[in-house]
Amino acid sequence: MDRSYKLADDEFNSLREYIYKRSGIFFTEKNRFQLEIKIKERLSDTGCGNIFNYINYLGSFNNSSDELNNLFNAITVNETSFFRDRKFISAVEKNVIPEIIKTNKVLGFGQVRVWSAASSSGEEAYTIAIMFAEHLKSELSKWTVRIIATDINEDVLKSCRTGIYSGYSMRNMSPDIRQRYFRHIDSDRYEIRDDIKAMVIPEKCNLMDYESCRKYKGIDLLLIRNVLIYFDAESKQKVLKTCFENLKAGGYMFLGHAETLFGFNNDFKLVHFVNAIGYKK
């Protein structure tokens, strides 16, 4: 049986327009085949048969129908891992976290707000939590470090809530960190320590939806990594404007490896770290 549903030109255009309007994700001609693979199951599960029926079907619900979630879950790419991108990790660990701790410390304790926007299954958020724990050591309990982990895809948020991961997603983690922060459940399942889990707050948030993004205010560190690549220029600009508003003055934002703001936004100051870049408000 065919792995994909062959999209006619007008079907492809209508479907990608619909997806774009709802999520900011833009399928180019080059990615057409991927969309054809991903949409096939949605069409058969819903019994819609063709794209126009499917779009009508989606339109008959309000904004957050189950089927819209199923669609998001199907079309998003959720690849992620703990301590992904060594250079970025090192910049955050050596510079950003110490700076945030220093500026937020009042009378020996403090509060920190991190937003991992498009966090996928949470590895990125828990990585930051672990790094704060490593820096704060015994002071950790005196601090309130909140790491908001958001995504549009409910399936990945579900895994984030369990805090259970495979060895593969931990491949860039030192054995020592794994030892101290995870409990081996069985064969290939590891559960993150309770106090670290409590630092991370998973929530659903569509980056295209201004109202749902704007509540994450006063952010010290914002990670929006490896997601802007799926957006077109206009959506990028929109999202980045919200990011800028949500950051504290002096707060940091990091994009994915090799992504830059050039041509999309002039509000941020470009900060160079050793083999990595970040942005500062």
Binding site: S90, A91, K94, K269, V274, G278, K280
Partner: peptide, 17 residues
């Protein structure tokens, strides 16, 4: 320094511009 050809242990970030 930012390209890893520094001398010494300074790993701090810098706003070049």
């Amino acid at each position: 320094r930012l390209k890893g050809f520094g001398f010494g242990g300074d790993m701090r970030g810098i706003i070049l511009t």
